[in-house]
Design a protein around this nucleic acid. Structure first.
Lengths: 260, 260
DNA sequence: AAACTTCCATAACTTATGATATGACGTGTT
DNA sequence: AACACGTCATATCATAAGTTATGGAAGTTT
C-alpha cells in the first residue's frame, strides 16, 4: 500500500494529472520503511513535531488523554493514510499516535514535505486534499457525537469503517476485522464501554450487526447506514475539475517537462 | 482585517520569511470585497465548490442540518479567517456557511488559490497551516463534546472565544460580545437550548460567567479555563522553525529574487 | 490443568441532559 | 398604550447514558 494508491492520487492518475516525475517525487516520501509492533507509539502528545508518516501496513489511531483519566480516540488510520498532517504548522504534537496491530510506516521530514509541495502545485494540492478528507471524517464524528444516539453513533462508526475498508479491499462477504476492544470503541465515540456492549447487543437484536470477537458482519449495510442517517458526501472520492487540470499552472513541473 | 494579519502570516513576517512579492500575492486574494448582511448565507450544503472566502469583517459560522431537524454548528469564523478550506478537494460543500452579523468577505477562486500555492512553498505552507489550525479547534471540540459535562463544554467554548477575540483586540475588561442565541450555542455544543440556559445560570452562580444579553464577562478567566480543563496547545501561534526558513527551498521565489 | 487476566454481557441503580410547559422580559410595530 | 414576537429562566417530568458490580468465556502463563 502506497501513497499513490490513496484514492485522491488514484483519481489524479486516472485523469493523467500526474507526470512521471511527480509520481517519483511522491514515492520519494516512502524511502525509509520501518516495522512497528502492535501498541507501539509513533509519538506522544506534546512531542516536538519532527516527522510525518505514511502508513503502509496495519492500523493506527490518534488520541488525547484527558485529565479525568478518560481517553478520546480521534482518528483511525488505515493503510495508505498519511499520519500527522494534523500537526502541520504546530511545533508540538496535539495528539499521540499508537499502532493498533503490527505494521509498517514510512516517516518523512518537514523538509521532504516542503520539497514535494514546492515541486508542483498539483502535489501540494493532493496532499492538502488528503489532509482535508481526513479532517472531514473527524468533523462528521463531531456531528454525530453531538447529535445522535448511541445506536446511531456505533452504526455510523461501523458503516464508515465498512466503506473505508471496502475501498482497500479489506471486506469480504460484508465481514471485516475490527481490532479494537469495546472500551476503545467507546473512547472513539464518547461512550462508556458498558454502553458500547449494550449497544452492540441492541444492534444484534435488530439484526443489523453480527459480531464474533473481532469479526464484524453487516448483514444489511444499507439498513445500517439509514438508521445512522449516514450521508457519504464526506467520503466522496471524486476531485473537482480544477484539480485535474493543473498543468497549466504548475509552472515548475511544466518547465522541467519542456526542458526534457 | 486582512490575511496578512492572521497570526500564522504575522509570525512569518516577524521572522522575515515573506518577501514583498509574496505579501503582494497574498493580498491578491482580497481584491473583491463584498458586503454581506446578517444571516446572509455564503453558500449551502451540497452547493458546488466554486470559491473560498477571506472574512474581513463580521462573524460567520458553518453548520450542518440533520435529518432530525437538529442543527450542528461546526465552526465560528472571526475576521482574518479563511472560510471554506474544509471543502478543498471536494466537489460539493460539506456544510453551509452563514453570516451571523453583517460584514465583508473577499471571495477567491480555486485558480487564484493554486496560483498562490504554486508561487512558493512558503505561501502554500502558510495557507495549509491556517487550515490545519482551524481544524484543530474542531478536533478540540470533538474531545470536549465527547467527554465533558455541559458546564465544561460551555466554559471551554467561552474561554476559547475569549482567547481568539483577545488576539484580534475584541475583548475589553474581560468583556466581549457574543452575537449568538442560546439555541445557537446549544447547536454548537450539542446541547438543548434549555440546558444552555441552565448551564449559564450555574456558571453565573459560581461567579465564573456574567452575562447581560449579548455581553459576556469573565471575571476570572483562569478559573474558567481550569474548570474546563482547557489546554491551549491547539491555539498556539508559534510556527515550528522549518517554516520560518523556507527560502532555500522555495525555488521559484528565490529565482525571481535573484533576477531582480 | 490450575490460576490469572482480559474482554464482554447483563443487571441494578444513579445522574446528566432532553422535552415540554409556562411566565417574564425586552423590542419593535401599529 | 396595546400587542405580537423572540429570547430567556425556571420547573417538572422523562429518558439515555454513566457507574458499579458480578459472572462467564476465551486466551495466557505457570
Amino acid at each position: 500500500m502506497t501513497l499513490l494508491k490513496n484514492p485522491v492520487f488514484q483519481q489524479f492518475r486516472k485523469n493523467g494529472a500526474l507526470t512521471a516525475e511527480e509520481e517519483k517525487r511522491l514515492l520519494g516520501l516512502e524511502q525509509k520503511p520501518r516495522r512497528v509492533d502492535a501498541s507501539d507509539p509513533l509519538w506522544h502528545e506534546n512531542d516536538t513535531v519532527d516527522a510525518f508518516c505514511i502508513l503502509k501496513q496495519g492500523w493506527a489511531y490518534s488520541f488525547r488523554n484527558l485529565d479525568s483519566g478518560a481517553k478520546q480516540i480521534l482518528k483511525l488510520y488505515l493503510p495508505g493514510d498519511i499520519i500527522g498532517m494534523r500537526d502541520f504548522g504546530f511545533s508540538h504534537r496535539l495528539a499521540g499516535v499508537e499502532m493498533i496491530d503490527e505494521g509498517v510506516v514510512c516517516p518523512f521530514s518537514h523538509q521532504q514535505l516542503f520539497e514535494v509541495m514546492d515541486y508542483s502545485a498539483t502535489l501540494a494540492s493532493g496532499i492538502v486534499a488528503i489532509a482535508v478528507r481526513q479532517q472531514a471524517m473527524l468533523t462528521e464524528r463531531l456531528v454525530y457525537v453531538g447529535r445522535h444516539t448511541a445506536q446511531q453513533r456505533l452504526a455510523h462508526f461501523l458503516y464508515e469503517l465498512y466503506l473505508r475498508l471496502s475501498r482497500i479491499e479489506a471486506v469480504k462477504d460484508n465481514t471485516f476485522s475490527l481490532p479494537l476492544s469495546q472500551e476503545q470503541v467507546g473512547d472513539a465515540l464518547g461512550l462508556s464501554s458498558v454502553h458500547v456492549s449494550r449497544t452492540f447487543s441492541m444492534l444484534r437484536d435488530e439484526g443489523l450487526v453480527l459480531r464474533d470477537r473481532q469479526r464484524i458482519q453487516l448483514p444489511d449495510p444499507m439498513a445500517l447506514a439509514s438508521m445512522a442517517e449516514f450521508s457519504d458526501a464526506y467520503l466522496d472520492e471524486s476531485m473537482p475539475s480544477p484539480f485535474l487540470d493543473l498543468h497549466g499552472i504548475s509552472s515548475r513541473a511544466l518547465r522541467d517537462a519542456q526542458k526534457a
